[in-house]
Amino acid sequence: MAEVLVLVEHANGEVKKVTAELLTAAARLGTPAAVWAGPGAEGGRARLAEFGAAKVYAADSADFADYVTAPKAELLAQLAASASPAAILVAGTTEGKEVAGRLAVKTGAGVLTDVIDVEAGPDGAPVASHANFGGSVFVHAKVKGGFPIIALRPNSVAPQAASGDATLEPVSFTASDAAKSARVTAHEVAEKSARPDLSEAQIVVSGGRGTGSADGFHVIEELADALGAAVGASRAVTDAGWYPHAFQVGQTGKTVSPQLYAAVGISGAIQHRAGMQTSKTIIAINKDPEAPIFEIADFGVVGDLFTVVPQLIEEIGKRKG
């Protein structure tokens, strides 16, 4: 079986969850081979083995962190030439998509972004699914000839444990001068909250204009903490400056597909739904029974969030306690 290359997402030596999802998807198309860009592959091997990586191509170079996206695309292009993969999978993060785009130009391969599922089609060739127009249409796409480059949206495929050897294969790699034209001169990590990452979280609690103020928005954080969830916000909230823009969910914000999405004081405008409609379970709390969010909610409460949410938090505490 041909290899399927998976670009590993890692930070501080830790393999990110989306990588497990990518390896699971890769196994449906061929033999998963992880690609580790940067130092630390040895430390990440065990985790990659747990999700079925047969091999780990490791290119230990500082260039991946020092220059924007181009070195990663070069590494994948180099491996694509030597491994003749059936597909190349990257995380559908903003950076992952850029790597995919550059790689497509380099290799002349077709690129499918914002993919929510991958399967082998009847002829064995990969078929990727997208949820278009805010999740109202499912489109199944493929590439003509050659291998596809697929950017898979985090949290779309459930990771499955599978054992692999994760044999380490050091790769010699030097970034070209052209790939080193945009230099990263500083890297600032946003204050790390104890909460899970918005795009990877199993549960997301989002607040909207109904919270009324930055102060009122605290109740969203409290509910998120009671559920071990990430916090999201509608654009009305980020526009007002009640919560940072990095947490905006929707068409021009993050796209999330958690197991559970709670929309609190959010009307459910089409642009907001575009970022959360593929969530597995949706609950809504809103005082307006006509709010469009109720059309897609599995469970909804028509009521004032400032009475419903505190009661919910208390109830969660009781049930946990």
């Binding site: 077709g110 249409v137 796409a141 590439v143």
Partner: peptide, 11 residues
């Protein structure tokens, strides 16, 4: 274009 839609359906 190198990508093509195989088919589509309403969600």
């Amino acid at each position: 274009s190198l990508t093509e839609v195989a088919d589509f359906e309403p969600a």
